[in-house]
């Protein structure tokens, strides 16, 4: 028997989602920033590594994953900041019948605003890197399965550091160690695809991590928000 307080009534969750989508649409110019940052980081790697084609192609999956990870981490601070500045965050905490549900919607909105455009850009970048078809599909599948963890776990960090001075760097320090499992399985899947070995297990691990994060992270985010705002 579910606690009725935990299940968001449909109108409230719709309203929150609608608001998030509206915000996303109104700031659609900003949607291009994470992909731009991602491309810039990905361009830095060849300069640092040197012009060796083989080495660059071998490192391409790792560079794409790390660029996605960094671009996502930089965007986490924004999840709650504007809400905190205009006071609507406190209203959300006070009002929402299901704060964890609202937090899950926040994470979903973040995924749509940052990792989703990044994945689209990664699809483009993989042709720049001249990846083989198998590697490219492994890269995209692993990104789709793994990046929800970035958004969900990142929302916890964003809640904990809301309104803290120098929050972006602190947030990265708190959150990056928690991203490592996703990086291991995500980059591992791409590497295995490059070597033409089976990649199924990594996909299952990534999907499992996403489901686990979707189940638990909203509750931690809600607890974090209450801790910060009480």
């Amino acid at each position: 028997m579910l606690n009725p307080a935990l299940v968001a009534p449909r109108p409230a969750s719709f309203a929150i989602l609608r608001r998030e989508m509206l915000r996303l649409y109104r700031r659609r110019g900003q949607l291009i920033q994470p992909p731009l940052f991602f491309v810039l980081v990905a361009v830095l790697f060849p300069f640092a590594i040197g012009g060796d084609e083989h080495l660059l192609r071998a490192l391409a999956p790792a560079t794409v994953w790390i660029s996605v990870l960094l671009a996502t981490t930089l965007s986490l601070e924004d999840i709650f900041r504007s809400d905190q500045e205009d006071g609507s965050l406190e209203q959300l905490v006070l009002m929402a019948k299901s704060l964890p549900g609202a937090c899950a919607l926040k994470a979903l909105a973040h995924w749509l605003s940052t990792p989703a455009p990044l994945i689209a850009m990664a699809a483009l970048m993989s042709s720049v890197h001249d990846l083989e078809a198998d590697t490219r599909s492994a890269l995209l599948i692993s990104l789709v399965l793994g990046t929800p963890v970035f958004s969900l776990v990142g929302t916890i960090g964003s809640a904990l550091t809301v309104g803290v001075r120098g929050g972006a760097l602190l947030l990265a320090l708190l959150i990056l160690p928690l991203y490592i499992p996703v990086l291991i399985f995500g980059a591992g899947a791409v590497r295995n695809a490059t070597l033409s070995t089976a990649t199924g297990s990594e996909y299952f691990f990534l999907a499992g991590l996403s489901v686990l994060a979707a189940t638990l992270a909203p509750f931690a985010t809600a607890a974090g928000l209450r801790a910060r705002l009480s």
Partner: peptide
């Protein structure tokens, strides 16, 4: 007090993650 409560959330999140990190590493 606010710091301690935020830290408590972080520590509990860490405890859930430590086995995952350990086994994935």
């Amino acid at each position: 007090r606010a710091a301690a409560r935020a830290g408590a959330v972080l520590a509990v999140v860490g405890v859930v993650n430590i086995p995952i990190i350990h086994y994935s590493v």
